[in-house]
């Protein structure tokens, strides 16, 4: 299954499941990154270490590890 870290810049997807452990998971949930939410990759750094994600009108910066823990599916899958 795809994760956010597989997406390209400007690509959109729907969140399927958050694999991160608590308390990071709770933090992501409370920032609006919940199951069914639409996310869009806005940017990532050159080394793809830090990611900038838009979801529910909120921009969130995450590390690759966290981006990798969010399972997504394409908009039309």
């Amino acid at each position: 299954m795809k994760t956010i870290s597989d997406l390209k810049i400007d690509e959109e997807a729907i969140v399927q499941k958050i694999m991160a452990k608590e308390p990071v998971k709770g933090r992501l949930l409370s920032m609006g990154i919940v199951k069914g939410a639409k996310v869009k990759v806005m940017a990532h750094t050159l080394a793809r270490q830090t990611w900038d994600i838009l979801s529910n009108n909120t921009k969130v910066a995450l590390r690759e590890e966290e981006a990798h823990s969010i399972l997504v599916k394409g908009l039309h899958e």
């Binding site: 991160a20 992501l28 920032m31 969130v60 910066a61 966290e66």
Partner: peptide
């Protein structure tokens, strides 16, 4: 610790 941070407009 993991890095998760909001970026406001």
């Amino acid at each position: 610790e993991p890095f998760v941070m909001e970026m406001p407009p």
